[in-house]
Simulated scan of single mutants.
Amino acid sequence: MTPDTRIEATVTRRGFNTASPLPLILTVAATLPRAAVAATAPEGGASTRREVIKQRLPGEPQRDITLVEVTYPPGSGSPPHMHANGVMAFVVSGAIRSKVGDGPEQTFHAGDAWWEPVGAVHRVSRNASSTQAATLLAIYIAPAGAGPADLMKPM
């Protein structure tokens, strides 16, 4: 299966705002030290979340963009959850198994990305490997001042 057929596009280029923060997000993700990220994954424990940056966006209504690094040790994952404001995910290293809503379970590799719509249930989010850590960057655009509990709500 080629990368083009593996990932379904949920946002068209035409529909994506040309003033989007996507170039900034991809630049930040590309500059993360991949070897260091993999080396800091906890052995056999739970996933870790680290806020990389939070920035107020211009305009009304007031919104923040928040980038959160999520590291899954080998064989670990997150319980089912939802994102009230939607979220974009970018795999920095390793491979992530993901199932959003009633869609198919898919494997995303370093360099792949996907979108989780507002209110969608993220049923599966886990490291696809039992031997190597995996890291993703979760990108949230949410109302100003939204905290971690607002960004990710366990089911």
Rank of each mutant, 00 (worst) to 15 (best):
T2D: 04
T5S: 15
I7D: 03
A9M: 09
T10L: 06
V11H: 12
R13I: 04
G15P: 00
N17W: 14
N17L: 13
T18D: 11
A19N: 12
P21G: 08
P21W: 02
I25D: 03
I25Y: 04
T27Q: 15
A30P: 05
L32C: 04
R34F: 06
A35R: 15
V37D: 10
A41R: 08
A41Y: 02
P42S: 12
P42F: 03
G44D: 14
G45E: 12
G45V: 14
A46G: 14
S47D: 13
R49F: 14
R50W: 10
R50V: 12
E51Y: 08
K54V: 13
P58S: 14
P61E: 07
P61L: 08
P61G: 05
D64A: 07
I65W: 01
T66V: 10
L67R: 01
L67A: 09
V68S: 06
E69K: 12
V70I: 15
V70R: 12
T71A: 11
Y72E: 11
Y72D: 06
P73A: 14
P74H: 10
S76H: 12
S78M: 13
S78C: 12
P79Y: 06
P79L: 06
M82K: 11
M82N: 05
M82P: 00
H83V: 01
A84C: 06
N85K: 07
G86K: 04
F90A: 08
V92C: 14
V92R: 14
A95N: 04
I96Q: 12
R97L: 15
R97T: 14
S98A: 14
D102Y: 06
G103W: 05
P104R: 13
E105I: 07
T107F: 14
F108R: 08
A110T: 02
A110M: 08
D112P: 07
W114D: 01
W115Y: 13
E116S: 10
E116I: 03
G119N: 09
G119S: 05
G119Y: 03
A120H: 05
V121G: 00
V121A: 00
H122R: 08
V124H: 03
V124K: 01
R126W: 00
R126T: 00
N127T: 09
N127G: 09
Q132I: 12
Q132K: 14
A133N: 02
A133Q: 07
T135L: 06
T135D: 01
T135G: 06
T135W: 02
L137E: 08
L137T: 08
A138I: 01
I141V: 15
A142Q: 03
A144D: 10
A146M: 03
G147D: 10
D150Q: 11
K153E: 05
P154G: 04
